[in-house]
Design a protein around this nucleic acid. Structure first.
Length: 465
DNA sequence: TCGCCTTGCACTTTTGAAGCGT
DNA sequence: AACGCTTCAAAAGTGCAAGGCG
């Protein structure tokens, strides 16, 4: 994996060596995370990955499987995955392509999937690939099983968090790094829209073998319950869609047409990243035009470095969180001058299981936002009830800088947007993340409430095991 | 009417208990 | 009794199709 989400041009990802050089025992700048089966992911991505979400929960396919290296063998780590909205829009499948169908709905309760083997020594994580096979997605906002809740017809991408911590409770004080892979972005749906995706799923998912052409299922089905012409209308539509899709190799590109009216921003960006566009789906290519970078190691393009992850919420995001937290006791009422908002949400760390999504509209504003120049439309306030902001920043180290950018909730946001005025619904915080953010990070532990304080909140209450 | 969602179906793979032999 | 292998049934995971709902 090579991609670091929205990495501002003025920020460069320090090479592993540089990170490792940071004189801090907690720094783990050498961690490398690689996505397994990237080709399969890319195949899906190029078409426009769709993931079914159901009330009882549906697994992902392809499922997230990664390889880790660079961990301290004897140190324990916790692996987490959450889903981040790609943008602040809702989509619809229209005439063989995805189009913006309005603003995104308020985010459902954010949840994080904790890898069942967590915590485990670095040696354990590195000796074999790590699968998140059992991670399930649901559209049931009242889900009681800990599945990750998503909205249908919205786009998301998984984020992998690696936290060095001996146990779940120490996560809060740990450094954690976040990784994302552009090719893993997907559109959550309750039924497949793009038949190409359906075919791919059937061809690659063993559980769907029964639907493969060479199988007998179809015949059986047709014999058992022949579909009358009228009833086949839907099927026909699907088929038509498929046939139509086949023609444009630049499917992804065409799928952006929906944006033209809103903010023809995409085309511009595309122009700037033509090469990427060709390789990735519209979603991916447009979303991460410039951030996609080769692994510093330069050996495997799939490798992504991640940056020392400090997990601060984006400046614009903090106020919102702050507001949310204000409703409940906040252990960390004392806040540093530069970390008012941050301190507030850090107090919620105990909700580590529930991870707030980054502010959808901010990060990608320049990418697909209808109003590139001004505040991006925002979905209604979201339930960012939890955060993974338990990392400790490394003052003065390269990672600290990227830290702004890679914060779990700022991941998608270009630095430039951070300093801009926040969306109306998310007024700018008293203090935007600034150069002294590192200081905030350093104060991270300082602001944490004690365990007793935050333990009032369920730890990983929503995680899947 | 349309788009999206839910549900039941038939199918497959996975999982774990039971049975058997060594 | 312990261990390993095989078998089988239940559970879980798929996409399809029909119908419901707003």
């Amino acid at each position: 994996m090579q991609f670091l989400r929205p990495l501002p041009a003025n920020f460069s990802v320090p090479p592993p060596s540089a990170m490792a050089a940071v004189p801090d025992a907690y720094v783990q700048g050498n961690i490398r995370l690689t996505l397994e089966d990237p080709e399969l992911w890319k195949t899906f991505c190029e078409i426009g990955t769709e993931m079914i979400i159901t009330k009882p929960g549906r697994r992902m396919f392809p499922h997230c499987k990664i390889n880790l290296s660079g961990l301290i063998p004897c140190a324990k780590y916790i692996l987490l995955v959450d889903m981040v909205p790609e943008d602040g829009f809702r989509y619809k499948w229209n005439k063989e392509k995805w189009e913006v169908a309005g603003k995104a709905e308020p985010q459902p309760p954010c949840r994080t999937y904790l890898h069942p083997e967590s915590p485990a020594p670095g040696s354990h994580w590195m000796k074999q690939s790590i699968s998140f096979l059992k991670l399930k997605l649901t559209n049931n906002t009242l889900d009681q099983h800990g599945h990750i809740i998503l909205h249908s017809m919205h786009r998301y991408h998984p984020r992998f968090h690696i936290v060095q911590a001996d146990d779940l409770f120490s996560v809060r004080w740990s450094v954690f790094q976040t990784f994302t892979f552009p090719e893993t972005s997907f559109t959550a749906v309750t039924a497949y829209q793009n038949t190409k995706i359906t075919k791919l799923k059937i061809d690659h998912n063993p559980f769907a073998k029964g639907f493969r052409d060479e199988g007998t299922t179809k015949k059986r089905r047709s014999n058992k319950n022949p579909i009358c012409p009228e009833k086949r209308s839907r099927t026909s539509n699907i088929s038509n869609r498929d046939s139509e899709e086949d023609s444009p190799p630049d499917f992804c590109r065409s799928s952006y047409e929906g944006y033209d009216g809103d903010g023809g921003d995409l085309p511009k960006r595309k122009g700037a990243d033509g090469a990427k566009e060709q390789r990735y789906s519209p979603w991916t290519s447009d979303r991460e035009p410039t951030v996609r970078t080769e692994s510093p190691a330069g050996t495997d393009p799939r490798d992504m470095y991640n940056a020392e992850q400090l997990v601060p919420a984006p400046a614009s995001y903090q106020p919102y969180r702050f507001h949310e937290y204000g409703k409940s006791p906040s252990p960390s009422s004392s806040v540093s001058s530069s970390g008012t908002g941050r301190g507030s949400f850090e107090s919620r760390v105990p909700d580590v299981a529930t991870v707030p999504d980054h502010d959808p509209s901010k990060p990608r504003a320049h990418e697909v936002g209808p109003s590139p120049g001004g505040p991006q439309p925002h979905p209604a306030p979201q339930d960012y009830s939890g955060v993974l902001n338990m990392s400790v920043a490394q003052a003065g180290k390269p990672g600290v800088i990227s830290h702004h950018i890679y914060g779990p909730y700022a991941a998608e946001q270009p630095l430039g947007q951070w300093s801009g005025p926040g969306p109306a619904q998310y007024p700018p915080p008293p203090h935007h993340l600034t150069a002294d953010y590192a200081t905030q990070a350093v104060h991270h532990g300082y602001h944490h409430g004690n365990v007793a304080e935050w333990s009032q909140y369920p730890l990983f209450s929503y995680s899947c095991w």
